[in-house]
């Protein structure tokens, strides 16, 4: 019941506002029997009184204002951390299919979908606003997401990834797992063996790779199970320009 519905107030009674009426309504409390509350209630109350700091007196708006500011910050953080769209095919070249159907630039890619490109084709996919990749050389890959963690299962071909620092993103092959720890990188699968090139940064490695992680200030490749600097043509199939193009296409800053 709002005050407007309170049958005892002047408005409900179609009477002009009247102090006498309000006071008379309050006096109805005397129709109840007065009772002394338990003595310990007063003791608890007196013990619980907290003096209001001088600086806070007359500034009661501070608490709701602070709460509103905090809520705004939290909403902003959630907004910035929430992916605003699902995966999308940004550019394609040659024959590109998604789940077996021909796909062109602009096509949506569902989580779990399998993307395939012809040996001369390329598919650039923006996974979300934190990561994207270029699939080429007869590549076949599937996207998946577990909460905020993104991963691409690479069955064949080459996958050049551009990832925003701090994003949980990994490329998984049959025998290995390559996690971005702040870098762009390419993973190649050939004859069921994975090759990875780190491009200025830090990678986490799992599976058959001999080291758990690797950092480099320059392009450098390694092959599972053995680290072979310069092997398999580390710069083959990608370059700084290719990375820059990919970053432009998927909307990541350089």
């Amino acid at each position: 019941m709002t005050d407007d519905k309170d049958p005892l107030n002047a408005k409900s009674l179609d009477l002009p506002p009247s102090r006498e009426l309000d006071e008379a309504a309050a006096l109805l409390a005397y129709a109840a029997v007065e009772r002394n509350p338990p003595a310990e209630l007063k003791d608890r109350l007196m013990a619980g009184l907290r003096p209001v700091p001088t600086w806070y007196q007359g500034k009661r708006w501070l608490r709701p204002a602070a709460a509103a500011a905090l809520a705004s910050v939290l909403l902003f953080v959630m907004w910035t951390r929430t992916p605003r769209s699902g995966p999308i095919l940004i550019a394609s070249q040659g024959a590109v299919t998604v789940d077996g159907r021909a796909a062109a630039a602009g096509a949506r890619v569902s989580w779990g979908s399998v993307i395939e490109v012809s040996s001369d084709g390329e598919a650039v996919v923006r996974v979300d606003d934190r990561a994207g990749f270029s699939l080429s050389r007869g590549g076949r890959a599937a996207l998946s997401r577990d909460g905020a963690a993104l991963s691409v299962r690479l069955f064949s071909g080459w996958l050049l990834s551009a990832v925003k620092t701090g994003t949980a993103y990994a490329v998984v092959t049959e025998h290995s797992r390559v996690s971005a720890l702040g870098t762009d990188f390419i993973v190649k699968v050939r004859d069921a063996r994975a090759y990875v090139c780190i491009c200025h940064g830090h990678l986490g490695l799992g599976g058959d790779f001999p080291e758990p992680e690797i950092a480099s200030q320059a392009h450098g490749s390694l092959t599972e199970p053995l680290y072979k600097p310069g092997s398999e043509g580390a710069m083959e199939g990608h370059s700084d320009d290719a990375i820059a193009r990919l970053r432009d296409l998927v909307g990541l800053q350089h």
Binding site: A29, Y30, A31, A32, V33, E34, R35, N36, P37, K42, L45, M46, L49, P51, V52
Partner: peptide
């Protein structure tokens, strides 16, 4: 923030308010 005043006000008002709440 006079606690004595609060104590006095409690003594004066609590029987009426408590009786009302009980009712």
């Amino acid at each position: 923030r006079d606690e004595d005043a609060f104590s006095r006000l409690y003594d004066l008002q609590s029987p009426l308010l408590f009786g009302l709440a009980c009712r």
